[in-house]
Structure formats: C-alpha cells, structure tokens
Design a protein around this nucleic acid. Structure first.
Length: 550
DNA sequence: CTAGGGTTAG
C-alpha cells in the first residue's frame, strides 16, 4: 500500500502534461488504487491540466469520481475558481451544473466563485437562480456569499435588488461597500455609485477609491475626484499604476488635462495604460496634434502601444485628416501582429472615411471578422458623409440582415444619406421606422436631418409641420435650414417669423450668427442684417469668430 | 479553499 502510494506520487510529480496525467489516472482506475491516498496531489494536478476548460466533461467526470470518497468540496471549489478566473467563465457555471447533477453538494465556498462567473458574464438570470439556491441551502448568512450576490446584482443593473440585500446586512465590511460601488460603476450607474460612496461608514481602501474615481470621471465630478485624490495621500496609499492611471483618467474625463499630466509626471513608473489615458484624453479634448506628439514620446520611452492606444491614435488621425500617419498605424498593427477586434477595425474604418478614402474604409470594413453596431455606424456614417447615399442604404439593409439592431446613431447616418441624395420618400420611411419599429425617440439631430431633407426638396409646409411636432425647441441649424429654403423660395413672411424665433434662442454660440451671416451673405437684405446686429448686441456678442463654419 | 479595483470606438 505504502509502496503503491509513493510510486503514484512519484508518477504524479513527474507528470507534466494532460496526456500523461490521463494515463496515470487510467492506471489508478485499472489497478484499483484508492484515490483517497493520492487525493491532494491528484486534484492539484488535475486542476492544473484541466483549468483551460477545453476538456470540461473529462474534468467533471474526474472530480465527480473522487468526490464521494473524499467528501470534501475543496477540490471542486478550486476547479470552479480556476474556471471563474479563466477567459471562459461560463465553464464554471456549466461545470457546476454537471457536478451537482452527479452528486456534488455545493457549500458556502462554492457560491462566491460561481457568482463571480455570473458577474463576469452579466448573467442576471443565473444570479437570481443561485440566490435562490443559496437561500434554500441556508448559506445566505455568509458575508462572502452576500458580497458576491450584491456584486452580481449591481453589475447586472439590478441595483434595487442589490440595495435590498445590502440594506438587510447586519455586518457590512469594506468589500460589501466596494462590491456595491464597483457593480454600480460597471452597470454605468455612476451617480448612484457616488451616492453610495459618500454614505460609506467604513474606511475605504484602494479598490473602493479606484471605483469611485471611475464614477467621478464619468460624471465629470471634478471636485469629488480631487477630494479622492487628496484622500489617497491622506491615507498613505501609494501612487501605484492602478491608482495613478485611475486618477489620470478621472482628470482627463473632467477635461482637466493639466492635472492629468501632473499625475502622469509624478508616477514612479508608467505603463501603456498611463500613456493611453493621456493620449485618449488629448483626443477627447480636441487636441489631436498633441496626442500624436505624446504617442511619439511614448514610443521613445520604450513602452509598447496596445490596440487601445492605437485606436485612440487612429482617432487623432481621423480628426486631423492625417491619412499618412493613419496608414502608418495600419502597417504597424499588421507588422506587430496586433489583434484586429471590432474596436480597432472601427477606428480604422472611421480614420479612412474621415481622411477621405472611402475605398480604404470599405476595404477594411469588408475584411473585419468582428463587426458590431459601432463598426456599422462608422461605415454608414462614412458613406453618408461622402454622399454615397445608395451604398449607405444598401449597407444599412445588410446590417439588418445580419440581425444587428440599429440605434440612434445608425439612423442619423441613414437620414443624412437620404438628405444628401434628396431621397425624400426613403427619408420619411426611415424616420417612421426609427420611431415606430425601433422605438427610438428622435434627437434634435434627427429632426435637423428631416427638416433639411424636406427643405431641400421645397417641402416647406411639411418641414414646418415637423418643427411644430418636435418635443424640444428647435436649434439654430433647424431654423437656419428653413430660413435658407424660404430665402430660395422668396417666402418673406416665413423668414420674418423664423427670425423672431431666432431672437428667442438662448444661444451664446456665436456660430449662430456666423450661420445667419452666411445665409444673408451676398444678398441685399439690409433690414435682416440690421436685425442680426441688434440680436448680437442684445446677447452681448461682439464680433464674428475668425473661422468659417465650413 | 470563497467576495471588491484602471484604459479604447459613433
């Protein structure tokens, strides 16, 4: 017996691949060697070779076999934890179901890892099911289980259920608070996350503060973000990469580039995320030229850009119309074997389209393996922008065939395509579809497209009808479109009406006046010009900006 | 043995 045991142990120690593991396992079964004696090492090896989830049935069979003799949940919980941490967390849930079917009794250690998988996958249905199982088996009292449930509910957007559980807890620790806050952040309920953060009655830790910083960034809560920055120092937390990057991103999203740069310069070390935050911040703040400069500095520093960095750089190229630079990034991605995902493909399509090469945009788009709604929107927008109305509508049809549900951005591109090509009937039809089939309430840009489309076709009455139906006050672009159409049709009375509407606009945007001046430019409409001058005086606007709207 | 943290696209 002892001899057999040490021999098996020796074998297991030598075992270095799944194949040899399976051979040993088969021998143990064949010679009826009792698993119990080799239990620990055997299950450790099993997890090591089976955690990549390619052979889930074998893994479940293996563990179901050894489970009755050990009567311990430990090996199975460890396996499930490896699955939950893997790239395919759904295997944890699948394995759980196999194992329970074959006799496994889950315990209080099982549910936190299973709930982690639900969180990662945003599986609200399963979260609720496991909540039920937890209650039935009597594990709801456990703090780890409660925290897991709170996190999965809040991640999945069920903040009411998360709150309910949270409020009923008699003992809350910092993980309970952080689970709720980070879950709300993940579900994009940033305001709620900040409210919870403000109500904390235990000391936050770095994890809490990082989640709160994300919420500050997304709500542009600069003051609160600054406060958290202060408390990181007050509490003596190190400015590590994660906290540093979270701070940089918070400042960037609050449009405080100088403060972001200051944190960046104070970081003891910088990774590609630190650099990417600064670069994407510069792009967001409309400083694309500087973004390219920083990208250059990043390369000199020796930090490798990843697909997120390159995506932001492409976006900078798009705003600059820098196609040569964009092409160079394209080459870089291929040479460095950077993975083409929907994200980077979309940025590439957008870059080529905005730089004027609709052919390259189409070429990249056709080669993309993963396309999502953003990819289609970029392609449709590019086609519409370049006046390829028919092709845009054709792509829209393809998109629907692929079963992708259009959103408001899609319809903006579709309506723009109709507008640029004078497709009145099609435009009306699509507008109707948007509202009545896809339940999208039109934004002011959609109304603007429709008004523009109708005006360009001389359908002034219908355009005015649309304007009257708008739930929001029309903006200067809409009045401007109608005004130009009236001018073209010599409809003086309506023009006067529109001008009086423009008086009422509370816009401080001097673009309004540039637009008006463009409309009246070249015509002898001194009265109107006088009116505009009065309008400007009333609003305290001194002069036209030096740039054209075109 | 179990729970919570950062970046990107229209």
């Amino acid at each position: 017996m002892n001899k057999g045991r040490s021999f098996v142990n020796l074998l297991l120690h030598e075992c270095n691949c799944l194949r040899s593991f399976k051979q040993i396992h088969a021998q143990l079964i064949t010679y009826n060697i009792i698993f119990g004696d080799n239990q620990h090492l055997l299950s450790k090896k099993a997890i090591h070779f089976l955690k990549d989830s390619s052979d889930i049935e074998y893994a479940c069979n293996f563990f179901s076999r050894i489970y009755p003799s050990t009567n311990s949940s430990f090996p199975i919980n460890s396996l499930l934890a490896s699955y939950a941490d893997s790239k395919t967390p759904q295997t944890a849930i699948l394995a759980y179901k196999f194992l329970v079917r074959d006799g496994f009794s889950p315990d209080m250690y099982t549910f936190p890892v299973i709930l982690k998988s639900c969180c990662k996958l945003l599986r609200i249905r399963e979260s609720k099911q496991f909540h039920g199982v937890v209650i039935k088996l009597g594990f709801l009292f456990d703090l780890y289980v409660q925290n897991g449930l709170i996190h999965s509910y809040s991640c999945c957007g069920e903040s009411d259920d998360a709150r309910l559980l949270f409020d009923e807890m008699t003992v809350k620790d910092v993980v309970s608070w952080t689970s709720l806050i980070s879950g709300l952040v993940r579900a994009a309920s940033f305001e709620q996350a900040l409210v919870v953060y403000s109500n904390m009655d235990v000391e936050p830790n770095v994890g809490t503060l990082v989640s709160a910083l994300v919420a500050c960034g997304r709500t542009q809560s600069h003051g609160m973000g600054k406060g958290i920055h202060g408390s990181i120092f007050k509490r003596g937390f190190d400015l590590g990469l994660v906290t540093g990057n979270a701070l940089i991103d918070m400042y960037v999203k609050c449009m405080c580039l100088d403060e972001a740069k200051k944190v960046f310069s104070e970081l003891p070390e910088r990774d590609n995320i630190s650099w990417t935050c600064i670069i994407s911040g510069l792009v967001q703040c409309k400083h694309p030229k500087e973004a390219l400069d920083v990208f250059h500095a990043m390369q000199l520093s020796g930090v490798e850009p990843d697909k997120v960095t390159l995506s932001s750089v492409l976006s900078a190229c798009a705003s600059l119309g820098a196609m040569d630079y964009g092409r160079w990034i394209h080459l870089y991605i291929d040479q460095h074997k950077i993975e083409w995902d929907a994200h980077i493909g979309t940025s590439m399509v957008d870059m080529y389209a905005k730089c004027g090469s609709i052919e390259m945009a189409l070429c990249v788009f056709r080669q993309m393996h993963h396309r999502n709604i953003f990819s289609w929107n970029a392609m449709l927008g590019g086609l519409a922008m370049h006046g390829h109305g028919a092709e845009a509508l054709d792509h829209f049809g393809q998109m629907l065939k692929f079963g992708i549900r259009p959103n408001e951005v899609t319809f903006l591109a579709v309506l723009t395509a109709c507008c640029h090509n004078g497709l009145v009937d099609e435009g009306r039809r699509q507008f109707h579809h948007m509202v009545h089939i896809y339940n999208i309430s039109p934004k002011i840009e959609h109304y603007g497209c429709m008004v523009d489309l109708l005006c360009r076709s001389g359908l002034l009455d219908e355009a005015q009808k649309i304007i009257k139906s708008m739930p929001m006050p029309p903006d200067v672009l809409i009045w401007g479109a109608l005004l130009s159409a009236c001018k073209a049709h010599g409809d003086v009375e309506t023009s006067r009406n529109i001008l009086s509407h423009l008086f009422e606009l509370k816009s401080d945007d001097s673009g309004v006046y540039v637009l008006l001046s463009n409309i009246f430019a070249g015509s002898d409409r001194w009265e109107d010009a006088e009116m505009i001058r009065r309008l400007m005086k009333e609003k305290g606007i001194k002069k036209f900006p030096g740039s054209s709207v075109i």
